[in-house]
Structure formats: structure tokens, C-alpha cells
Design a binder for these strands. Sequence first.
RNA 1: GGGUCGUUAGCUCAGCUGGUUAGAGUGCCGCCUUGACAUGGCGGAGGUCGCUAGUUCGAGUCUAGCACGACCCACCA
Length: 899
Amino acid sequence: MEKRYDFSASAECAIYDDWDSSGAFRSRGGSSKQKSYTIMMPPPNVTGRLHIGHALDNTLQDILVRYHRMRGFDCLWLPGTDHAGIATQLLVSKQLSASGIDFKQLPREEFLEHIWRWKDQYGNIILQQLRRLGASCDWSRVRFTMDEGFLRSVRHAFLRLYEDNLIYRAERLVNWDPRLETAISDLEVNQVSMRGELCLIDYPVVDESSVITIATMRPETLFGDSAVAVHPADERYASFVGLRCLVPLTGRSVPIISDDRVDREQGTGALKITPAHDFLDFEIGRDHSLESIVIFDKRARLNDRVPPAYRGLSREQARKDVVSALRTEGLLREVRAEEHSVPHGERSGVALEPRLTKQWFLRMDDLAARALRAVDDGDTLLLPQIWHSTWRNWLSNIQPWCISRQLLWGHRIPIWYTESGDEIAAISEESALEIAEQRFGKGISLSQDEDVLDTWFSASLWPFSTLGWSDEGFTDSSLLQRYFPTDILMTGFDILFFWVARMMMMSFYFMGCVPFRVVYLHALIRDASGRKMSKSLGNVVNPIDLMDRYGCDALRFTLALQAIPGRDLRLVEKRIEGNRNFITKLWNSARFLELQDCRYDRDFAIGAIEGSLHKWMLVRLRETTIKVERALDDQTCLFHEASSVLYHFLWDVFCDQYLEMVKLVLSNGNAAEKEEARFSSAWIFYGLLRLLHPFVPFVTEKIFCDAEIFASRDKDERLITSQWLSADSLAFTADNWAGEVAELEWVLGLVGEVRSLRSCLGLSPREVVPLRCEDLTSVAERYINAWTIVARGMAGVEWSGRGISGDVIKEEKIVGFVYEGFVNAGLGLPLGFAIAEAKSRVAKQLKRWDSEFEFLKKKCFFDDKFAKNAPEAIKRAEMLKFEEAQRHKELLAKIHQDL
RNA sequence: GGGUCGUUAGCUCAGCUGGUUAGAGUGCCGCCUUGACAUGGCGGAGGUCGCUAGUUCGAGUCUAGCACGACCCACCA
């Protein structure tokens, strides 16, 4: 083995390529008899670059997949990318405009060619990056949400929903993004809090000398006003209802109406109604049959429905101009600065404009109800379960989903129109023509709907479309049979509604069951000071960069350690550094075993082990295995638990305790003991290596391949294909070896106590301290004889048993007593130490035990409530504690006196 | 307005169904390099668990209220 573990990109890639070419990642397919385990990777955007969120997401998935693979499952982890309509179109159009091409001037097909070319060139960068992360997905089944299969699936899905009247086309007010010039769904709207001006504007009442004052943050929309509304019970305005008023700057008069949706408390209580540009106004306008006056074009500039002076202005400019004109006319009563929130496009970042257009919608109520019931019934488990109520709230108040987008990149809506405007839904243009001819006779010319579908529409088919689903009798259903429903979906909570809910709905609709049994929603990664990572803050960390500096395993382990359900995690570089040290520790422990000629032998029988050191270690190994298995269970997914158990087991137990003791055996034991230590330690290490592999795959594989410890492995054998050392397969039980465990705990406790005291007393580590032992219990006597070497090697003490007189004490300063550990271990075992130090220590302890004693005495003997109400087991435990405290107190008092 | 979460050591965080002296990493202090590892070893200091009440024999843990912080949804005239 090399002296240092090489975690450079090239070294890790070599390991990865080995795995990949050995076929270890590949799922077996329909013929396999193994149990299957399926995860569909949430497809990253083709435009994406691996960010830290992907790293977390895929690390956790990889841990599960590797774990299940080692446990003998036939794993399918299917990777892929999403075509990401808006993001991709934006990116490519920006590139084009950088080279002087306006994509809007290009024919549709030509622009799409540019995008496809771009996709072929850069579209799988992120998949390459996932390899660097160690993601063990089945690359033979990689998918893209606009590949051939998806094209068929999407059209089938659309047609069925259309035929079942769940998809319909309607003219509605939708959220319109004036920069992207497309409709977007409610979910893609972000409310941004901004400073604005609330304008109180007088609308002169026709034929009266009075005015009605309305309040608005958007005075420029007054050109679209078609009424002023007040609350029916509002006495202030009761006399105006039924009259008309003049919309300033236009000369138009509009009715003053009453409607109970008007809030009397807001603004002035009088509301201007602009049906074409406000959601509430739209409803009021509809119910009062008001005209909808569209005053913005698709880029949100004022159109020719407004007075010439304002045409072509942006909303912002128009707002300024309108305010000053109103001021000139004396109709502006007041302007107040106010905070308000303005809907912005999540993607484009510009203020949205509600816009009246024809769009395609998907009715959600029934679909949502089914998805809701699935989670209520436990068919799908949401982890952490906190999300259950959020899930319920959202699904039970669901609005139709606007699925059409006025974009070029995406799945075209499979609807064709005749010249007279008849709709024909079909799977392809040919089929549409056929239908048209049947219906209307020959010679019909058709044009396809210009819109494309929301990216999330195709994404919602991901779990089954990736397995070859289409409709009736389409190909390859054996994969669906075998791998669907999938076992777990791992993703961020931010796309719970965008994606998870919609997959659930579609799966019920098309497959009749849930798409996944568990949904694990991981949290957000923040920077070291707790801020969200964002480009504008400049605090985005690049996971590739972190891997270059600390190794992939260190990053993975850090993420796993912090993957606590429902908690955001802060990425602190110190922690990654610490985990790199952990990887080094692992590497060096392997080197140690190698240098000591420890060899793994698959025929080595752990049942024949005699040394209690190894038995203890095996019990601890089994215990650790159980903890890891329990933590990785599908229903819990406690990655932080599993990884922290392994961290401490390797470092504290295996290295600092076990290997230190193995060293002593190897230097002091007899031949048989040495041999046993070599085989046992290697055997145990192999088990540990397998436990660690899902978390830190590269270093463990490298050790397995390079270390002489595993020289007996087959040439092509890889750790990734090794069988997990399951707790069940360890043929011993903790009970059989309880004595050995107690023995080791005793000696380690002793070592700890002696070390602590030595350090307090300032004894040099080199200095071997002779200790005189008296009043040994039989168990201690046995242990002391057995563990003399360890006591000397690890605690630096040389002890002598009963009957040896005090003259072994050779240092003058050693005249006090060691007490704590021995007392705790149930031994009255006084040992000599320095008097002044010992005395103050004893005094401190005495005080503690004295108060403990008094407290427990009161509780056990004078507390009636306790005596009456506490369970027997607790009472017994308290009584034991009392007796212990009493013993300690008395012993310490005596020692204190002696000193 | 509706909902969710958080507040534990200097810092970042664990702490499962209430039960010995509340833990880890990191930082800090002291000691230690001839053989796996200084990316290391050994020891140590440091917390009235946000505040107030309550339930209980017993509360970091359960209940209520409050304070501060974060987030989601809806609305915003």
C-alpha cells in the first residue's frame, strides 16, 4: 500500500472505471430471481452542473443502492436528465444572441436544432460529474425526458387525459412572464417583498360634484378599469352604488358596483376593477359581466388600448407618467410608501403580469385526492413525516394546473387544428390526418398547436416512462413488472409539489398504484453561516472543488453525517477536513494491519477464537452492524446515525482500543496468540470495510484491492460485489461472550482512569508507575493477571497483587490513592499517588458524592410520592444508586482522612 | 392571515418512546514523535439545555404562554 491514500480525481476515476467495466452497476433485468431494489434518480437539468444539493441527493441514493446491492438485491438505479424547457431555451438563446442571432427570427426547427446540438455537446456533463461522486447507477439505462420513449409516453398520457376530459383548453387569467413571454404555473411564482407607492386616486362621480377615492399600487392599470367596486354594506359609499364615475386620463365612465369580495378595511374601501390584469378583479368582472380590457402586450408594455402618450411604455415608466399626470389634474389625493409583495417569475426574476390567454389546463381535484389518500393510508411513506400535513394542505386546496407553455423547447402539445378551428388529438401527425380525413373528408390541412408542455408534465411520468411504459401493449413491460413501483424517491422538499405530487397523481392514473413506497425529502444545504447558497451572495460551493481538495469520500461522509431528517445542513469546511482525516485514519489502519502481516482468510473460523480481546471486538462489530442496518432501513433512513456509528466505531473502538491492544499481543503474546490476532484483526477489518463501503466507496475499494491483507481475494473480486457482513451471519451472540465483554470493559475503564490521573499528576508518559493493589475481588484478581500487559502498555502501570508490601512504591510523590475507577468498577483498590493532588481530588469527589448521597437518601426514604408512584424498577435502581453513593462517600471520607 | 420548524459547550450540531454525572466534531489548554497515522496519541477545561408557568416521584425531552430566528402557503386596494 502507498503511504498515503491518493484521492485525486484520476485515482478515483480509475476505481470508478473498474466498477463500471466490471458491470457491477448493472441491473439484472427480468430474468433475475433476486429481489429487486429500484431508485429513479431525480433527473438533473441538462443545463445543470453538479451543485452541492445534487451531491447530497445522489450520495444518499448511492449509499442506499450500494447497501442493498451488497445485501443481495438486484438494484436498478436509473440515471437521466431533464430537458428543462425554460432553462435550456434561455441558455441557448443567450448563446445565440451573443453571436448576434435573435432566436425569435429563426424558424422553429432551426432553433431546436441549435438546442439539440447544444444538448449533444454539453448535456451530459452533469452525468460525468455524478461519476466523480461515485454514483453507482446503471448507465445502460440512462434516459432523457425528450428521448423517443418519452415522446411516446407524453403523447399517450396527454391523449388519455384529454379523452377523459381532464385536460381542457380555456381562456383564463394566468401568470404571465413578460420576459420569457410564456404562461407559467402557480408554483413557479415567487412573492417578492418590495417597496412601492400606494396611490389614492379620485375618480369623479358622473353628474355629482363628489369623487370616489380608490387606492392602488398600480395606477398605470387604470386604463384597463371597467368598474369601481365597494362592499354592499359599506355605508360610506352606499349612495354611489349604481352611479358611474370617470376613469381619470381616459374620459371613460364606468359603473360603481357593489360586491362582498371587496374588503372594507383595505385601502379606501373602494376598489378599481381591472378584469384583465388582476385575479380578484377577473372574478368580480366575470360575475358582473364587465368588459376585460387588455392593456399590456406580451412583454408587458402598454398597447394601443391606452391613450397615445402612454403606448409602448414599460409598466414602470407608465406608472411614473400616470402619477404625474394625475397630480397635474389634481386627482392624486395622496401617495404613501408601502411594503407589498409582488409576484415574480421564479426563472426569469421579473415581475409577472396576470394575462388573459388561451391555455391548456389539467384538472387536479380527483388526481390529488387519490395522491392524498395514498399517503394517508401509508401506501407511500413521507420522510420526515413532518411533510404529511403540508402534503395534505396542498393537495386538498388544489387549482387546475396550467400545462401549456409558449416556448419552443419541449414536448409539443399533440393537438392539431383544422382551418376551421376543430381540435384533433392524436398520437402523431399522420394519425391526426387520418382522423381528420375520416371526420371531414380528404384534403384537410392541419396545423399543430404551437405550445409545448410544462417540463414537469413529462417529469411526472418519470418513474414508469423510464421503464418502457407507454400505453396498451407497448414494449418491454417486463421491466415495469420487475422494477415498479420503485422503492424510494430521494429528493429535496422544494420540489415536493412540482414533481413528487404530480408523479404520484400520474402513477395512480396510469399505473393504478403509487410510484414509490417511500419519499425521502432531504433538506437544504446552507453555507457555514447559515445563509442559503446563491449566486448573488457568491457563497455557492462547488462540490467538485471540495472533492479535489478533500477527496470524494470525505465529502460524501460529511454529507451523510449531516443528513438529519428535516434539518437544513450547514456546510462547514472544517468538518470536511475532519472527515478527510477519518479517511486517512481508515487508510492507515489498513496499512498497520498490512505491516503486521495480518491476512484475511475466508476459511478462518471466528467460532474458534479464544482471546477475549477478539471476542469482545466481534461483539462490538455485531452491535455496530445491527445499528447500521437499523439506521439504513427503508422506513427510517437515518444516514447521520449510521455514519456517526461507523465513525466512532472505526476511530475510537477499532483503532484506539482494539488495534492498540492487538499491538501489545503482537509484541508480547505467544506464537498462537499472535497468529490468532493476525487472522482475527484482518477478519474483523474486512467486516468493517464492508460496513463502510456504501458511505466511502473509493477508499474502501482501494484498500480492498491494494492491501496485502486481502491478497487471497480473486483477481477480479471487488469490494462493491462483496456480500454485506450481516448481523445475522455472525454466528455468535453477545450473550455467549458477555464475560469477555465485561472483562474488556473493565480493563478499558481502568486504563482510562489511570491515564486521567497520571495526566493530572503530571507523570511523564515514559514513566512506568508501580501500583500496589489491595483487597482485590476475585474478578479483579483474574483480570489483573490477564491484563498486566495491557495495563503496562496502555496505562503505563505495573501492578502487584495482594500480599506485596508497600515498598514497591519508589517515587516519593506517589503516596496518594487512585480510587474512582476502581470504586466504580466495584473494587476497593487503593493505589499510591501524590498526596496534595490526591487530596484535592478526593475532596472534590467527596463533596459530589456527599450531596448525591443526601439527595438519594431523601428520595428513597422520605419522599412519600416517590415511594407511592414510581415504578418498582425505578425504585430499585434508585436504591442501588443510594447504596453506591453511600459506599463512595464513606470510602472517600476515609481516604480523605488518611491523606 | 393560515401552517411548519428551530433556539443545548466559543463555533457547527446530536440527544429515539420522560429515568445514572446532557454527548460528538471543531476550536481552546497541558503533555507526548524509534515504526499505521502529527491528517496522529493521551489527558483536560467549557453547558442553570431561549424565557415563564404547568403536568409528573422525576422534564433538555410532554403541555401552554412568551421572546427571538428560519421557512412554506394564501392575500395585499
